[in-house]
Design a protein around this nucleic acid. Sequence first.
DNA 1: CCGCTCCCTAAGCGTTTGCTCAGCGACCGA
DNA 2: TCGGTCGCTGAGCAAACGCTTAGGGAGCGG
Lengths: 244, 244
Amino acid sequence: MTAETGPGAVDGSPERGVDGGRGAGAGEPEDAWGEVTPDAARRLLLAAVEAFAERGFHATTTRDIASRAGMSPAALYIHYRTKEELLYQISRVGHERSVRILTEANDSATNPADRLAAAVHAFVRWHAERHTTARVVQYELSALAEEHYTEIVALRRRSEEILRGILEDGVAVGEFTVADIRGTALAVLSLCIDVARWFRSGGSRTPEEIGTLYADLVLRMVGAPTGARGEDDRPERRGPADQR
Amino acid sequence: MTAETGPGAVDGSPERGVDGGRGAGAGEPEDAWGEVTPDAARRLLLAAVEAFAERGFHATTTRDIASRAGMSPAALYIHYRTKEELLYQISRVGHERSVRILTEANDSATNPADRLAAAVHAFVRWHAERHTTARVVQYELSALAEEHYTEIVALRRRSEEILRGILEDGVAVGEFTVADIRGTALAVLSLCIDVARWFRSGGSRTPEEIGTLYADLVLRMVGAPTGARGEDDRPERRGPADQR
DNA sequence: CCGCTCCCTAAGCGTTTGCTCAGCGACCGA
DNA sequence: TCGGTCGCTGAGCAAACGCTTAGGGAGCGG
């Protein structure tokens, strides 16, 4: 009666929630969480992301989240059953987004080198652009409840499999030279994820630039000929998504 | 009176504390913190490392730390003034160790490729071998008090400078091909550090193996010819920089 | 106008938190 | 034998925590 499963839009059918239907076309909402239905629930989610990223889940109080959203502490519990559910929604949506980014990049080309470059570029760019969200998504997993944790871990395994698949294909067709495919895939993923830890908005590099740098570094890591691909970075063009 | 600055051995002269005098020779104590003087203080430090690594600083209670060390909650405050001071000691000793590992590796050879390989190998190996400690050292910084935080950040900058220095030398003598030295140095450091996040003791790879893998990956990232693998030509063969 | 629903708040619940303090037993030089 | 120090404990304090509950006011169909 009070709050059965949190906000309807986020907890609804698997494809509803934040990122509508592959709206990559034109002006999609700048910040994620753009379509969480009760407006107050969206503000609370956004406030929680900021607070969790800044101080960590355990150091964040429900009073802090509520006041950032301009509400009383009790208002939180109208939209979410617990503080942990807030983290779970953030984590779930973020991981689904990660998997989708990798999947789309993987489908954007046929030869492994282009697929790998596109995947790393898009993945790294997301971690830099949305580093606040990504920090929570990637580094607060251990605060999830047991059931939620296992669900999220399954999504993470999907990401790892996609990346490993690209490396396997690349080795198979002779584009890559990799001795330890599984270890290298893990290292690449780790390299990309850690961007969320150190990236700051005021820095000298844009997310786009870091994406390009990292795509090049990773191609070198797998022994792909690097000089060949000059400016082939248009698997999907995007708007000027530079601000939140 | 009660506890002025914590345990004397840790807070003593800069070179005392945990890792005595370059005991690289034979059977040095397996765990770090081997020489923290009051035995109870060492047990508390060890307990804190475990607890912080497992649940994070904020989710760890002083009662949990004390009970892991087999003591009452009050005993903690005989050796440390606050819970944060425990974290500070762990962080400081860990970062000093990091800088020393990088410094020694940097001095272990003359040509940049060997220096880079040795640095990455040793740094990664430490993060895997002592992943419990390293996890606290690398991922709980934000819980430090302001004054302690700035002190630690200075140590981290030292690490970054050492690595950037190697890359600059390598580019200068033509061993490396790196467009963005600063960005690449950051990426390499990030790659190594993140080992502490995902490494588990039961895994299929030993710290030694991961160190070797990562040294190879990083040499590729900087465009250095990798001597060991495959049929690549050999400009200068690398010494046996495998041991430590 | 009524009466219902939906959001929201003020107040506060029971618990846990970091930390304190009086005191006690073991040890030790005299 | 004795007084003093050291390391530690049992009990507990004030504050902060996650979360609950009773109730109020704006909007709206009738």
